[in-house]
Amino acid sequence: MKPESEVVKPHDLLIKKFFVFACLLILVLASAFMVVLQVYSYRQDYSGYNDVIREKESLNAEWGRLLIEKETFGATAQIGTRAVTQLRMYSPPATQTIVISLANAKDQKQ
């Protein structure tokens, strides 16, 4: 016969099974909750990624338009035409033109 301390009572066995079942159930629920959090986080990150990609495409399109505009406004003939038409700039006549020669200025100082 076994001593009384080694005898497993059916009530103790039932409590151990319930405890193991409860622990496993808690672990399964925690695992499911973590999966839900990971999927939510992934969807938020993916949405942010799509927003950044859309902004990148928009900026690339704007950059292309700005390059075309730069080339258009950078033409010398257009600059001269716009200076005359929009800013009312003109070349002064010969009577209003003064020529300063640096070589003559050096000779006068010596």
Rank of each mutant, 00 (worst) to 15 (best):
residue 79 I to P: 00
residue 30 A to Q: 05
residue 52 V to H: 06
residue 60 N to W: 02
residue 92 P to S: 03
residue 26 I to S: 14
residue 43 R to C: 02
residue 21 F to N: 01
residue 37 L to A: 08
residue 35 V to A: 11
residue 49 Y to D: 01
residue 6 E to R: 12
residue 5 S to K: 09
residue 76 T to I: 05
residue 74 G to Q: 03
residue 45 D to A: 15
residue 85 T to H: 02
residue 41 S to H: 14
residue 78 Q to H: 08
residue 29 L to I: 03
residue 109 K to V: 10
residue 82 R to Y: 04
residue 76 T to Q: 09
residue 16 K to D: 01
residue 84 V to G: 01
residue 73 F to W: 10
residue 77 A to M: 03
residue 53 I to E: 04
residue 50 N to T: 12
residue 62 E to C: 04
residue 16 K to E: 01
residue 33 F to Q: 09
residue 28 V to N: 11
residue 58 S to L: 13
residue 24 L to C: 12
residue 108 Q to A: 12
residue 90 Y to M: 06
residue 32 A to C: 08
residue 90 Y to E: 10
residue 97 T to K: 07
residue 85 T to V: 04
residue 11 H to C: 00
residue 20 V to Q: 08
residue 83 A to G: 06
residue 5 S to D: 11
residue 78 Q to M: 11
residue 37 L to Y: 02
residue 40 Y to T: 14
residue 42 Y to D: 13
residue 23 C to R: 07
residue 3 P to A: 08
residue 47 S to Q: 10
residue 76 T to Y: 07
residue 48 G to L: 04
residue 62 E to L: 15
residue 5 S to E: 11
residue 6 E to V: 10
residue 64 G to L: 11
residue 70 K to N: 10
residue 83 A to D: 12
residue 48 G to W: 07
residue 76 T to W: 07
residue 79 I to F: 09
residue 38 Q to T: 13
residue 68 I to K: 14
residue 61 A to M: 13
residue 104 N to D: 12
residue 14 L to Q: 01
residue 63 W to V: 03
residue 90 Y to A: 13
residue 52 V to D: 08
residue 56 K to V: 08
residue 53 I to G: 01
residue 103 A to Q: 13
residue 6 E to A: 13
residue 103 A to Y: 11
residue 83 A to F: 05
residue 56 K to Y: 04
residue 79 I to G: 00
residue 87 L to M: 12
residue 37 L to P: 00
residue 23 C to P: 00
residue 33 F to I: 05
residue 82 R to E: 02
residue 75 A to P: 00
residue 4 E to I: 04
residue 84 V to R: 11
residue 109 K to T: 06
residue 1 M to L: 09
residue 25 L to F: 04
residue 42 Y to E: 14
residue 80 G to E: 11
residue 9 K to A: 12
residue 25 L to I: 03
residue 73 F to S: 03
residue 69 E to G: 12
residue 41 S to Q: 15
residue 81 T to W: 09
residue 2 K to C: 06
residue 94 A to V: 14
residue 92 P to L: 01
residue 89 M to P: 00
residue 109 K to L: 08
residue 88 R to H: 15
residue 83 A to N: 12
residue 54 R to M: 04
residue 17 K to L: 15
